[in-house]
Design a binder for these strands. Sequence first.
RNA 1: GUGGGCGUGGCCUAGCGGUUAAGGCGCCAGGUUGUGGCCCUGGAGAUCGAGGGUUCAAAUCCCUCCGUCCACCCCA
Length: 429
Amino acid sequence: MADPEPRPRKFAAPRGTTDVLPDDAPWWSFVRSTAAQVAGRFGYRRIETPTFEHAGVYLRSVGAGTDIVEKEVYLFEDRGGDTLALRPEGTAGVMRAYIEHGMASLPQPVRLYYVAPNFRYDRPQAGRYRQHTQFGAECVGDPSPLADAEMIDLLCTFYRELGLRHLNLKLNSIGDANCRPAYVEALRDYYRQHLDGVCADDRMRFEQNPMRLLDCKEERCQPIVAGAPRLRAYLCDACREHFADVQAYLTALGIGFDLDDTLVRGLDYYTRTAFEVQPLQEGSQSALGGGGRYDGLIELLGGPPTPGTGFGTGMERIILNLKRAGLEPPPPRPLALYVAHLTPEAAPLALRLAGDARAAGLQAVVASAGRSLKAQLRHAGALDARFAAIIGASEVATGEVTLRDLRDHSERRLAAAAAGDAVASEVPS
RNA sequence: GUGGGCGUGGCCUAGCGGUUAAGGCGCCAGGUUGUGGCCCUGGAGAUCGAGGGUUCAAAUCCCUCCGUCCACCCCA
């Protein structure tokens, strides 16, 4: 033999991406179907937008000065020369679709939800991936605080139905175009006096995105954050009232929350309500979900002035927390029937029998050809099958099947055509 | 972008300078003629992450890179 060719290089999944293997699939179907059910019960309808958009959709809407736009967006040029971007977050694409398809002429508000992958080029870590999946919902065309409360209610209901406990809802209002400028002014004035004692990031934020000075985590900046003017004190009457109503509705719903002055969204089109949910325990990073009101966004994307509010929540982090909480996903369907066959003549019967079982809604697997009966039954055991059908020369001759109960080891012979039903009558489907 | 831990067959792990890299799980096959889960036996499967260096000799020491995990940051 000639020298074997050098083995081709083995590939690994790109950094920050994961394979969802069969063992984890039950978690995913559980979380996905719960999302669909809960959203459906709130009257939200599913929307799917492309995984990539013209880059401007995201760059304009997510906003300059944010980490996402500065360094995390996957940008690429296609062969036709268009500049495109992989979806870094869910809302912008949905709003683009709202505008493009004239949803403003549907009965308002329009309630939409999605489950879709998002892409951000940041450094992977526990619960942080370059591709992650978000369940999100948007309520477009309703300016009232009731819509904000509904979003939070939907999100909390979702978590509750999954079985997640010990969550902390943080709530804030960041004002609107009427009142925020005065606040930002005051904040700037305050920080101007403290610029020496503040971290380098903060000095940049001071210039580019003063609101985000408030959520600086740097220890030495904390006293300065603590002494900063309170945004809530600057809210105009309309915003104050809106915020009070959101809280009243949440209270009526029995949803607990903590007010948090430092919870901010830096950009102008974010208005009023902002919220975030995190696991109660390790309060550091790893928000499970968050959202808020974005009354300026649709206009920014070229649509008519339209209010909107929504949330996004990370599926991988949810599953991580479900596992940490010691919960189990609903068990997958068991294998009802394993069909063993001993001769080439038996194979067609085996295939037909498996087909009968499947038609009855059961899970059935046919053994690979050419293995000993012992090997086939061992395989059946390894797959945790409930029944094994055995088809050898003797069964072929009589058109029968030997059906073995793998729990109590009992066996009986019956007509091949009846075997599928026999299994079905004993295995819940 | 910054810092730290770790990289030995599919998985977990032993070996930490010296002949053909060891074990467990898993996989495949046998333990007589058509029968599983226990037990026994055998087999396949590793250029010890990659490249360079030190040495008579390196999986074992040094350097670089890559990957991965964890934390910071940010976010979901």
